[in-house]
């Protein structure tokens, strides 16, 4: 690795850390100025809307298969339904995800033969 690449990695690392840390420090300062008791109510309304929409956008992007074909699209739909059904039953985190991945894998596996 030459020096320039090393500096580029260091700059990207420090920059990324600052992008993660500074907004938190700003918000903690903002909350301390307002009140310590009702912190949740004191976060700006737009920010509390942006949180769930960020998660929804992450879901939308991650649902797009890396290699799009009939098998992966079908597996995505069936795997998502399986995840939701197990979540309705268990209301937990681990089992619904595990079941979704297993069902997704099965559909991809079967799809390789039948589709």
């Amino acid at each position: 690795m030459d020096n320039a690449t090393g500096w580029a990695i260091a700059a990207a690392a420090v920059g990324t850390l600052l992008l993660r840390v500074f907004p938190l420090i700003w918000m903690r300062h903002h909350l301390q100025q307002k009140s310590d008791v009702n912190a949740v109510e004191n976060i700006p309304a737009w920010l509390s809307v942006l949180g769930p929409t960020m998660i929804a956008a992450l879901l939308g992007v991650s649902l797009v298969p890396g290699h799009i074909n009939a098998s992966t699209v079908c597996a995505t739909v069936v795997g998502s339904v399986a995840t939701l059904l197990v979540w309705r039953w268990q209301k937990s985190l681990g089992w619904p995800i595990f079941s979704g991945v297993v069902v997704y894998g099965l559909v991809v596996y079967l799809g390789a033969y039948f589709l």
Binding site: T16, L19, P23, L24, M27, L31, I43, S48
Partner: peptide
């Protein structure tokens, strides 16, 4: 390269404030 890396990671600015409370 550095600017593009940071631009992609810019979405992280809303994460910390959202969990701060």
């Amino acid at each position: 390269v550095i600017v593009m890396t940071l631009l992609i990671n810019a979405r992280h600015v809303v994460y910390g404030p959202n969990i701060a409370p």
